[in-house]
């Protein structure tokens, strides 16, 4: 058998896979050919070195990690995605995007809504949560603004004549009154929110003739709603 044929059969010879006749021929050749014999020993040595590599064991039990990951995955694809390698994560990306997109849309909608609220001053109609597209425009007498950033508190220009008996009739009651100051500075409506309406009538009549500096928002006159608490207190001289 030639050297070339022997070299081609060395691996099978090592495994004992050669038919008996061929195996004897290879053995005979190796006994008489120093080059093939050296190559045979070299091959045996290389394979033995590989087989003698020490077996390595993981520093911590793989099983605990695997069971942890299985539990995390069983909770839902979103969390599992964090723990999976890139190529294994692809099948889970789409279902995870759906809740992510919903959260994103909710946050964006919230931001837009808050910005709109910040631009529009509060109005009476909004306070009552009766927002309706058919309401008069904000800042008019039918839908006045509240004093706030950009909307000044109306300053009184002239007071109505208050009869002497108006205060006397009040007794020691307190009145809580809402006044809508119109865009021209006059009193548009006046409403008694708390107090005796009969006793308050002369006072309310007097307040209706008050005149204010026209309140403004961004340079244009607007109607503004203000609230006043009016009390009468009789002050007596201290007893000596």
């Amino acid at each position: 058998m030639s050297c070339r044929r022997v070299v081609r059969r060395l691996s099978a010879y090592l495994d004992g896979d050669l038919p008996a006749v061929e195996a004897r021929a290879v053995a005979a050749h190796l006994g008489g050919c120093p080059e093939c014999s050296a190559r045979w020993r070299s091959l045996q040595g290389a394979v033995a070195k590989l087989g003698a590599l020490p077996r390595l064991t993981p520093s911590e039990a793989v099983v605990a990690r695997v069971m942890d990951r299985l539990e995390v995955e069983s909770r839902g694809p979103g969390l599992a995605l964090l723990f999976r390698p890139f190529w294994a994560a692809r099948p889970l990306i789409l279902p995870s995007l759906v809740p992510a997109a919903l959260v994103l849309v909710s946050v964006l909608a919230g931001i837009v809504a808050l910005q709109q609220d910040g631009q529009r001053p509060a109005t009476v109609a909004q306070r009552g949560e009766q927002w309706d597209r058919r309401l008069p425009p904000s800042g008019t007498e039918g839908n006045p603004l509240f004093p706030s950033a950009g909307v000044s508190v109306p300053r009184i220009r002239s007071r109505g004549v208050l009869p002497d008996d108006a205060l006397a009739a009040m007794g020691e009651d307190s009145l809580f009154i809402e006044t809508v100051v119109a865009r021209d500075g006059s009193v548009s409506t006046i409403t008694l929110l708390d107090g005796d309406s009969e006793r308050a009538r002369p006072l309310l009549d007097a307040l209706r003739s008050d005149r204010f500096e026209p309140p403004r928002y961004r340079g244009r006159p607007v109607a503004v709603s203000i609230y006043r608490l009016i009390s009468r207190m009789e002050v007596r001289a201290p007893l000596t």
Binding site: R8, L10, S11, A12, S42, L43, G45, A46, K49, L50
Partner: peptide, 16 residues
């Protein structure tokens, strides 16, 4: 396997 063993033998030749 035969080719892999031969490749390994060549790489380990200096060590052997």
């Amino acid at each position: 396997l035969a080719r892999a063993r031969e490749a390994l033998r060549q790489r380990l030749a200096p060590l052997l």
